[in-house]
Amino acid sequence: MNAAGLVKAMVGAFVVGVVFGGATAGANALSHRFADLESASYTVGGWSYAEVLAVVMDSGWAWAGLAVAAGWLVTRAENGAPGMLVRGAAAGALSLLVAVAAYAFGETIDSGGALSSFVGNEQFVWWVAGLLFGAPLGAVGACAHRAGVVGLLARLTVPVGAAVQMVLIPPGRNEVITAIGQGVVGVAAAVSIVFVVIRFLRSPRRSSEAAGAPAS
């Protein structure tokens, strides 16, 4: 990939991070507007579509999935190219850094705080986490293009991670929201896993059929 292609790829990772961070902050803001926390019954068992959306988007697996998606996005046209893992890692880290900034900016606007104060100590902690985890997750996204077991494991990282988190550390303000979030993510993760595995199992058959086809 030349310099222009690299710049274009990083711009793509930047845009993906901005969109995800801003959308997550927006989902949280929307969920707060629908939550009637002054009602005891709503606090215990109430829910809204906005709250479920916020639970899904603002989960750890979704942020990890952002870095994986960014790594996949910037390397989708260069399978096996030299430096592919490095570019995927850079894209994963960049997407998380930008997403944290966009999220903090959106939260500051929603809370009515001064725009000059949207960067605080908490953001620095998440930026460090973005660097530490974004790079390896972005490299995983780059590996998702590969054939074989490595590619299979890379493609399963996000759905398996989502399923595990929703079982071990389920998010949600109350049990109802938690249960709905677990159901939505669990079904999506199961469908994704089945799709990835079936496609992986069918890929050798397609390769052998192509190799055995007579030349025209």
Rank of each mutant, 00 (worst) to 15 (best):
V18N: 05
H32I: 07
G65V: 09
R76Q: 12
I177W: 02
G26D: 14
L94R: 01
R87C: 12
G186E: 07
V158K: 05
G60E: 01
V119R: 02
G46I: 07
A62N: 00
L115F: 09
A4L: 04
V149D: 04
A40C: 00
G71W: 04
V68G: 08
T178Y: 01
S31Q: 14
V119Q: 03
V194Q: 00
A93I: 06
S203W: 09
G83R: 13
V158D: 09
F105K: 02
G138E: 06
G5T: 09
A139H: 05
A67H: 08
A102H: 03
E78W: 06
P171S: 13
W72N: 05
V56I: 15
A29K: 09
V185S: 11
A25N: 09
A104N: 15
A4Y: 02
Y42R: 02
A129K: 13
V100Y: 07
I198A: 14
A27L: 15
A50P: 06
G151Y: 04
V197D: 01
A29E: 10
A25E: 09
Y49S: 15
G138V: 05
A99S: 15
G60V: 11
S95P: 12
F118D: 07
L201F: 10
F20R: 00
V100I: 13
V184G: 01
N2C: 00
A13P: 04
G65C: 12
A23E: 04
A210Q: 12
V187D: 02
G212A: 15
Q182S: 10
G161V: 08
R155I: 05
V150H: 10
N174D: 10
V7E: 03
S41Q: 11
R146F: 07
L168T: 13
V52E: 02
L153F: 14
V125N: 11
A190K: 08
S208Y: 12
G183S: 03
A29P: 02
I198Y: 11
G21A: 12
A144P: 06
A99F: 04
A77P: 00
L201G: 04
I169S: 14
R202S: 03
P171T: 10
Q165W: 05
G65M: 12
N79P: 00
V18E: 00
E78K: 01
H145K: 13
S116Y: 07
